[in-house]
Nucleic acid binder design. Sequence first.
DNA 1: GGGCAATACG
DNA 2: CGTA
DNA 3: GCCC
Length: 374
Amino acid sequence: PQDRVHLHGPSRDHDSRSPSDSISLPPSAFAAVPTLSVYRKSPRPCPNQALVDELAVLRSWRFLQHGTGAPESISYATAISAIIGAPKIDNVEQARKLHKVGPKLLIKIDEFLTTGKIAESEETRNSAKFKALDEMTSVYGVGQKTAVELYENGIRSLEQMRALDRWPIGFKYQEDMQIKMSRADCESVANFIRIQLDRVEPGAHTVLLGGYRRGKTHSSDIDLLCTYPHEEGKEKGILSRLLYRLLAKGLIPEDGVLWSSSFASHNVAPERASTRSFDSLDKAFVIFRHPANGITRKRDYFRRVDIIITAWSTFGSAVVGWTGSTQFERDLRQVAEKKGYKFEAGGLFDKQTGVRIPTLTEKDVFRALDIPWL
DNA sequence: GGGCAATACG
DNA sequence: CGTA
DNA sequence: GCCC
């Protein structure tokens, strides 16, 4: 998720470079780059794409060493995000004006501007430990902590991990889950699910979110948001019916429901079920079997799909919350907090009263928080 | 020196 | 702790 | 690592 690049409209991730980018801008233009990602565009590729690619290695390295939530990691993520939102950098004085880019980053940027690369990035890419941790965390259920622990115990490869027999599901579908999906693949998977959804709840509506919506050409998973337009409450129960149907049709393997709020509530104590925050969205993380079509798919492929259900009245919040990127969500919450709101994918709330502001559309969220639509 | 987004749940 |  |  950290590779997600944020943007605002559905066309947010398109190349927005222009001929004027070849002209060197005054440092003041860089000081004008907004501090938070919600106030700037994030084109991809961006004008500083080669630099970003180099710095991204160091960001990954920090993620693997300290976790994505560690300050060392967040500082790199925010700095890279700022660079993504900046015009073409061709001297250090410009970079110096960017918010969130400090002395340490400037040294790296300077090196890149003079040599065209960053030595530490290259070393990191080739380091055995980096490669081992990177590979180990690719297994579903294995995060940074576990990978570091495994490494300390001498584990270095997927083969060694497999022998431990601790992640049966992770390894069962590991191979397919490494293969990224094209946008056409994402759309095809979504359409398979829509057909079944229409059988259990005609009139229900779905949209593809996540990296796909941000314009990524390839995705490692699919985020599918489902609602029932204009009829509050009619979305209730959709998830379990849909899951049962997908299971019955073999579109989800028997062991393919990795997690589901809906299914869980079956064997859950009633009081526990009602304890659930009434705003939290129903969701299921599944393995979807994408049937072969004999043309673009010679065989079935197993894909990670997240299915999320939202009430119509909070559809906008759900769209914003499940589109990302990670950085965008962080910055959005900061803005909400500062303006007396609390934002979650389940809704936008007044911090004082706890009252939920209706957010039928994505623009309702932006409007309430006074964030421009870029 | 404190803060960095946020939270439900298995 | 891991996942979203 | 960067900002307040």
